[in-house]
Design a binder for these strands. Structure first.
Lengths: 188, 188
DNA sequence: AGAGTGGGAGAACGATGGTTCTCGGGTAGT
DNA sequence: ACTACCCGAGAACCATCGTTCTCCCACTCT
């Protein structure tokens, strides 16, 4: 019957994600999403009744995927829990090395729409909160002092935007070095 | 004769800056700039023959103002040069506390237009480069090791976006703490 | 004073984009 | 085979925006 409704929604989100992330939300019209996904406009509007709904779905899914990707990368790291804290920055390095890396979708969307679309601003806030909480969890698991988490999160955030603008993955390395110093100092 | 041509250009840039920074570049039409600046459309297009030229001028001036503001803040700090390095984060705190703070204009513009407007991406790169060089200069003046500059720049960058999205100036404080630790470790 | 010029206000134009509508063909149920 | 419905393709509609044009007034130069 339905060729899997959920399946089609995913296909639309796949197309939307690639386009929105690659070119910016405002630069991508519904027509581009329709062409890229192969889903007719009518159906598209049945699944997502407006562009802003689609954008929210895009951000929600991206949030889940990113955090899940980070968590599974980190949890696969063997050794003492401290290693897993530092592994955040190895994950960043891999992310930054993807050929179409263009920074954090949430920061970019916030810059585009944060002032005019409160849902977008809220999504960005929620994502960054979740990231901070995850870092805090890793820090706690390694028996390191809580304030370290915020410091490491700042380094990661800085690396994300610096890598995007400079176009190299190097900031991940530098952030890792700095993180190591902070961790060593915190252990004392 | 000319009611000071340069004066009018500045007035236009003042209006453009407030609008572009506050709402995003794409969300602001030439008409809004015209109304806010009180300069007729015809004159506006004489001064800046297209929106993209105006946007570039906006970014160029913002770059100059920001770095100049930072430099004069930092240079007014007495005491050993190391204090001036840490003062970067005090300056950030003040900046973040401005009521209409909305993050870094360059990061925001990059998110909006970086993918489609190479000049914007270049402007962002140039600005971040200049910032890094300035930090490096302060670090060198304090006789601290060069790699520290990149680390501090990452903290600052992270604080800028975290403060924007979270809506509080606190990240500046946290970044300052982390910077202190890195500086102390580097001195050893 | 009269003609010309510069400039302002805002209409006009063309393109783009979000959203809806129309049309035509295919499919299912009888 | 006939009818009723669903759906895709794309046109249509309306708003917005970048840019240009028109009209008109005030001022200047002779």
């Amino acid at each position: 019957m339905t060729v899997d409704l959920e399946d089609t929604k995913e296909r639309v989100l796949d197309a939307a994600e690639e386009l929105y992330y690659g070119r910016g939300v405002q630069a991508v019209g519904m027509d581009a999403v329709r062409t890229a996904s192969g889903v007719s406009l009518k159906r598209l509007y049945q699944l997502y009744p407006s562009k802003s709904v689609l954008v929210e779905a895009y951000l929600r899914r991206r949030d889940a995927h990113l955090l899940h990707g980070l968590a599974s990368y980190v949890e696969a790291v063997p050794g003492p829990p401290e290693e897993r804290v530092a592994a955040i920055f190895d994950w960043l390095y891999e992310w930054f090395s993807e050929p179409d890396y263009r920074g954090c979708a949430f920061i970019n969307s916030y810059g585009e729409l944060g002032a005019t679309a409160p849902e977008v601003a809220a999504a960005a806030r929620a994502h960054k909160d979740a990231f901070q909480r995850y870092v805090a969890r890793l820090v706690a698991a390694a028996d390191l002092p809580a304030p370290l988490a915020a410091h490491l999160a700042l380094l990661a955030e800085g690396a994300i935007t610096t890598a995007a603008i400079s176009g190299t993955p190097e900031p991940a390395r530098q952030a890792r070095e700095a993180a190591k110093v902070l961790i060593a100092a915190a252990r004392a």
